[in-house]
Amino acid sequence: MTELNITTNPENKAAVVSLLFQLADDDFLYSFRGSEWLGLAPHIEEDVASSSISQDSMGHAAMFYQLLEELGLDNADALAHLRPAKERRNSILVERQNGEGYYMDVPKYDWAFAVVRNYFYTAAKKIKIESLKNSSYEPLANVAVKVNIELYYHLLHWKTWFAQLLNSTEDAKQRMQAAIEQVMKDFGDVFSLGTEGEKMVEIGLIEEEKVLVQRWKEQLKPVFESLNLSIPEIPASPAANGRNFEHTEDLESAISTLSEVYRIDTAASW
């Protein structure tokens, strides 16, 4: 494999930067929404487990921001906290609030929604990371190997919840079905690689969207078959494509909340 030229080829570099922002912003928002569940999960064991997953995922986001910093962009903390919604590349799926209410007030979060979103998102992330292990951008391929190992446990966790709730009471099944519908509405941009997508595939950063989607479905197949469910369709054209900076209002409020402490003193060491 010849080394990817990003130093003198600005188009290549733009593709690498775009992909890294997609990965970093995805995990950053995903772990932020996960951390809002702290103290609210169905039981104490789950509180420990899902916090641990959020912490791992924040670690993954930090690594992707770090790779951007190494490419000469701003420092990783600033990239994570200070960029406005219109510069973010995360999927709209991960920016959606956990449910009604605010965690400092009276949160009425929906655990079924959390389980379905986390399971489908983690399954998608696993497929992408597997592909990234062979990325032509070597620093990213190295990080992918590490992330992949940790993802194994995350996927196992959410798969277990997903199957258990769908094998549970009528009420649980109905809530899960509703959550699946809700999650799928926002799934249209999860595998999108955005406007630089073709370039990314051409230079071997990652495989193309439809290959990844097909693998995602194959991965879910045995689980869905065992539950007598058909795999939901991903919307052909997303309502909003976060990869191209299209977002919902939920992202604005998430950013203002999550960066509040950081903005008080950007030079502080925590």
């Binding site: 064991e45 420990v48 487990a49 899902s50 641990s52 997953i53 912490q55 791992d56 670690g59 940790e150 446990y153 196992l156 966790h157």
Partner: peptide
Amino acid sequence: MENIFGPTACRSI
């Protein structure tokens, strides 16, 4: 196995 995710990322309970 009580909880595959323990008090730290690398441990289970």
